[in-house]
Design a binder for these strands. Structure first.
Length: 199
DNA sequence: GTGTGGATTATCT
DNA sequence: GATAATCCACACC
C-alpha cells in the first residue's frame, strides 16, 4: 500500500499531474471489495482555452460542475450513451481542468479477480485498456462523480516510480474536432506497457 | 422543444 | 476499416 496523493499534488498544473500520475495506483473500495490498478495512460484537458475540454470557453453547465471543484475531486461523465469516462480534477476552483485516466494495469491478486467479475474478458490486456473499460473494471459509475479522492472510497496512491524517459507524450485520442489542439502532446503513457489503449 | 454528435467499444468485413 | 449501439448534454430556436 502506498501513501494517498495529497491535495497539493492535484493542485499542480494539469500537464504535470497527467505526467506524474503514470505509475500511481488507482484504488476503489466497492461492497467490501478492493479494486485497483496502476495508471499507465492519461490525458490532460486544459480548461477554458482548450477546445477539446468540456469547459472550453468558460462553459458552466450541470455536467461540468465537477471540474470547478478543488483539485483532487472526480469528474465522471457519460459518453456515447453507454460508457463512462473517469477524470481527476486538477488545480483550483478558478481553473476547471482535469486529467482523463485512459488505462490502468491490473495487478495480480484479489483486486484483479474482483475486476474480472465486473468485466469478464479473455485477455488481461483487454480488462482496463481504455477509459470506459477501466470504469467497468474499477466499478466506477456515474454516482462516483464529484467524489473527493482524499475523503471517499475512491483514491490514488503512490506505487511505482517510472523512469521519465519511459513516459511518452503524444497527441490526445478522439478529439479530431478540436482544431490545432488535436496536435497538442497531452496524452501520456508508459512506453511499452501492454495495457495502454492504443499501442 | 428539437437536432446534433460525442475524451468509446464491440463486432462485424 | 467501417459501423452500430444508445442517450444525454448542449446549442439554438
Amino acid at each position: 500500500m502506498g501513501s494517498k496523493l495529497s491535495r497539493a499534488f492535484y493542485r499542480q498544473d494539469t500537464t504535470s499531474v497527467a505526467r506524474k500520475l503514470i505509475g500511481k495506483r488507482l484504488v476503489h473500495l466497492v461492497n467490501g471489495r478492493r479494486l485497483a490498478g496502476i495508471i499507465v495512460e492519461t490525458e490532460a484537458y486544459l480548461g477554458i482555452n482548450d477546445p477539446a475540454c468540456h469547459t472550453y470557453g468558460g462553459r458552466v453547465t450541470p455536467r461540468t460542475h465537477a471540474m470547478y471543484l478543488n483539485g483532487g475531486h472526480s469528474y465522471v461523465y457519460r459518453i456515447y450513451g453507454m460508457y463512462l469516462c473517469f477524470n481527476v480534477v486538477t488545480r483550483t476552483t478558478q481553473h476547471p481542468e482535469a486529467v482523463l485516466i485512459r488505462a490502468v494495469e491490473p495487478e495480480a491478486g484479489l483486486a484483479l479477480a474482483h475486476m474480472q467479475l465486473l468485466r469478464p474478458v479473455k485477455s488481461l490486456t483487454d480488462l482496463a485498456s481504455g477509459p470506459a473499460k477501466l470504469c467497468q473494471a474499477m466499478g466506477i459509475d456515474i454516482e462516483c462523480n464529484t467524489l473527493d479522492l482524499l475523503d471517499s472510497k475512491l483514491w490514488i496512491e503512490n506505487a511505482k516510480r517510472i523512469r521519465t524517459d519511459q513516459i511518452i507524450a503524444r497527441p490526445r485520442i478522439g478529439i479530431d474536432y478540436a482544431g490545432p489542439a488535436r496536435k497538442w502532446p497531452l496524452r501520456f503513457y508508459w512506453q511499452g506497457n501492454p495495457h495502454i489503449s492504443k499501442p
